[in-house]
Nucleic acid binder design. Structure first.
Lengths: 213, 213
DNA sequence: CATAAATGTGAGTGTGGACTCATTTTCTTG
DNA sequence: CAAGAAAATGAGTCCACACTCACATTTATG
């Protein structure tokens, strides 16, 4: 008698009504998680925000983890689409790359209030982590701009750039509108300077690093 | 009949035994919060880790918030001491300042596993926020190194530097030992370059910023 | 040693929040 | 329209965790 781990069944919407509901539920989840944080976001609050009953929420997302996973999956796909458009266009000067990166990121996060929360969350290994997705994509772009970078080095620089940008967005959320523009400028400068050094032909970068030996 | 908000009484230790207990409880709280995160850190787990019963924990810290507040207060004082030593020493070259800052911070956080968690936590306005404490101190040091910086500008730069360092420490915690050294170097370079530009006499900084128009 | 104060204990209580389900309402299809 | 499928509902269950309390043990003091 094999005691299988109870295959949780998630109802998949068959009617337009159902799809609308799922969309509204995900949207509500994003808002509530963004406002309250992951742990404090209750299933009831999410259902309420979506104008649905608690039972309705559980029809489509049989538990909190699955709901979160669905949101993460959605973000992954949107990210893939966004970054593919980056890679499709011609390589840019560092300064323009940074400006584009920063600008698009801020808009992206503005419309996805739960993104940073999910980023911090541990996630099952089989699922693509948002963080890894981002790092791989950026590393690829960096490698294209500066083919002399080793893969591991490109990955490393990408990790740093993304971490810095994450910090920027946290500050951005705290600041009053007026100071936000200044903050973005500041970070654009910081990242441009950093990347210009990193993407220079090998000997320049080495020189610079040696100077600090 | 004034219905006062029930003055929660926190037992203050009278014997050495009590002081040891309080110390062990705070230490345990720091560990558990550091490992599990604030929300998932349960009072029972903290008591258990300290080798105390749940009742004992509640004698000295009548609820989770007060416990957290005590930990925050401890960190505040330790921070004040650390930064005062920075301010006491002679002004340093930017590169040395950064190295000292980065080095001391990593050690500090290594011994205070709950620090980053508390940093993220909202906290009652009357209590000194760790974040504000840090910003004020660093801003003061920057202002001393570069008196031409306006106060608000120094504060702004300090906020950016601290946010970048926070990111560094998050990455640091994820990385294997071998890569940590490299990460620290990377951030030292990044921060030094950034601060060297910011702390230069006014016209240089303006020039540079103008270049990006 | 007697006494009281400080400290320690863990079973027990209350509650909020994740999750269930019997039932009803709405939609689709022939 | 009939009848079944999809979707909606919310009262109710269950459990983990914050917090209490009556009582036990240890320590300080005269």
């Amino acid at each position: 008698m094999p005691s299988h781990p109870a295959p949780v069944r998630r109802r998949v919407p068959q009617q337009e009504r159902g799809e609308r509901r799922v969309a509204r539920l995900l949207e509500a989840a994003a808002c509530v998680i963004g406002e309250a944080g992951y742990d404090a976001a209750t299933m009831s609050a999410i259902a309420g925000r979506a104008g649905a009953s608690i039972g309705s929420l559980y029809q489509f997302f049989p538990n909190k983890e699955i709901l979160t996973e669905a949101l993460r999956e959605q973000y992954c796909e949107e990210l893939r689409a966004l970054w593919s458009s980056f890679e499709a266009s011609d390589p840019l000067r560092v300064e323009d790359l940074v400006k584009k990166l920063v600008g698009e990121t801020i808009v992206f996060l503005d419309n996805r209030p739960a993104f940073l929360n999910l980023l911090a969350l541990p996630c099952k290994p089989k699922n693509t982590s948002l963080r890894d997705l981002l790092r791989d994509r950026l590393a690829r772009i960096l490698h294209r701009s500066a083919p002399h970078l080793s893969e591991s080095r490109a990955w490393f620089v990408a990790a740093v750039v993304l971490q810095v940008m994450k910090g920027m967005n946290e500050l951005y959320a705290e600041l009053e509108r007026i100071k936000r523009r200044a903050l973005v400028r500041e970070y654009e400068g910081l990242l441009t300077d950093y990347l210009e050094v990193q993407l220079k032909p090998l000997r320049f970068a080495e020189q610079r690093r040696a100077k600090r030996g």
